[in-house]
C-alpha cells in the first residue's frame, strides 16, 4: 500500500536549513498496523504528512497504491487523499461551527455523495463509535474522548483504505485513550491499514510493527515492540 524510497524533506527558512527526513525508506502493506515512534522533532509528523499526501517530499519517491505521488499537485493529492485516507489528530481538529453530524458528513460532501446516502452512512458510523446520541451537539459541548470519537468517525466515514493517526490519545486520559485504541484495533481487524505516530509505548503495543525514527532516519523496524 505504501512504499517510500529515500524520502527526504528539507525545510528552508531564510537562513536555516533543517533536514526533517533523511532518506527514509519504508513499506507498509495493506492491512498492517504500524506505529511510528521517536523523540520530539525526529520527523514523525513530517513523515505522516507526506504519507497522508498533505505535503510533498523534497527528494525521493513515494508510491501510494501503486501511484508515484512525490510530485503530485495539490489538486491531485487532494483527489487521491479524499478517497483513500482518513485522519485522526491529537487535538481532534473538529470544526467548531459544525455539529457532530455535520463534521462527520464533511468528507462525504467533498466526495460528492448525495444527501440521503450521506445521512445513512453518517448515522452508521456514528453508531459504530457510539456517539449518535450526541449528533446534534457542537464539538465544544463534548468531552475530549467524545470529540476524538467524532474525529475517528469522520476518518472512517468515507471508508478509506488507510487511516493516519497522529498521537490520537495524546490529549486524552488513559481510559478514554484506551477506548480509542481499541477502536483502531477493531478497525484494523476489519482490514483497514493504520499508520500511527505516538509517544506512548502502551499505544504502540496495539501495532504489529514499530518504526523508530531518530533525526529523520529510520533506526529500527521491529515486528513487535518490546514491552
Amino acid at each position: 500500500m505504501i512504499k517510500t524510497a529515500e524520502l527526504t524533506k528539507v525545510f528552508r527558512t531564510d537562513e536555516v536549513e533543517t533536514t526533517a527526513l533523511n532518506k527514509v525508506s519504508l513499506q507498509v502493506d495493506s492491512g498492517e498496523f504500524v506505529a511510528i515512534m521517536g523523540p520530539s522533532g525526529c520527523g514523525k509528523s513530517t513523515l505522516l504528512n507526506i504519507l497522508g499526501l498533505l505535503d510533498n517530499p523534497s527528494k525521493g519517491k513515494y508510491y501510494f497504491l501503486e501511484h508515484e505521488v512525490s510530485d503530485y499537485s495539490e489538486k491531485q493529492r487532494a483527489r487521491l487523499r479524499k478517497q483513500n485516507i482518513g485522519f485522526v489528530f491529537q487535538n481532534f481538529n473538529l470544526i467548531d461551527e459544525l455539529s457532530v453530524f455535520e463534521n462527520v458528513e464533511l468528507p462525504l460532501i467533498y466526495l460528492g455523495v448525495n444527501s440521503t446516502d450521506r445521512k445513512s452512512r453518517v448515522e452508521e458510523v456514528l453508531e459504530k463509535v457510539k456517539i449518535s446520541h450526541r449528533k446534534k451537539h457542537f464539538p465544544l459541548q463534548l468531552s475530549g474522548g467524545q470529540q476524538q470519537r467524532v474525529a475517528v468517525a469522520r476518518a472512517l466515514v468515507a471508508k478509506p483504505h488507510l487511516i493516519l493517526a497522529d498521537e490520537p490519545t495524546g490529549n486524552l486520559d488513559s481510559s478514554h485513550g484506551e477506548e480509542i485504541m481499541k477502536m483502531l484495533e477493531e478497525l484494523n481487524g476489519t482490514g483497514t491499514t493504520i499508520v500511527m505516530v505516538t509517544h506512548s509505548l502502551r499505544d504502540a503495543e496495539y501495532a504489529q510493527r514499530i518504526v523508530r525514527l531518530f533525526d529523520g532516519q529510520v533506526v529500527t523496524e521491529n515486528i513487535k515492540a518490546p514491552v
Binding site: 498533505l54 479524499k82 485522519f87 470544526i95 467548531d96 464533511l106 468528507p107 468515507a158
Partner: peptide, 16 residues
C-alpha cells in the same frame, strides 16, 4: 484557518 485546514485534509479542493 483551522476550518480551512480540516476541510482540505478531508478532501476539499482549493476552488471549493
Amino acid at each position: 484557518s483551522k476550518e480551512i485546514g480540516i476541510k482540505k485534509v478531508v478532501g476539499a479542493y482549493r476552488k471549493q
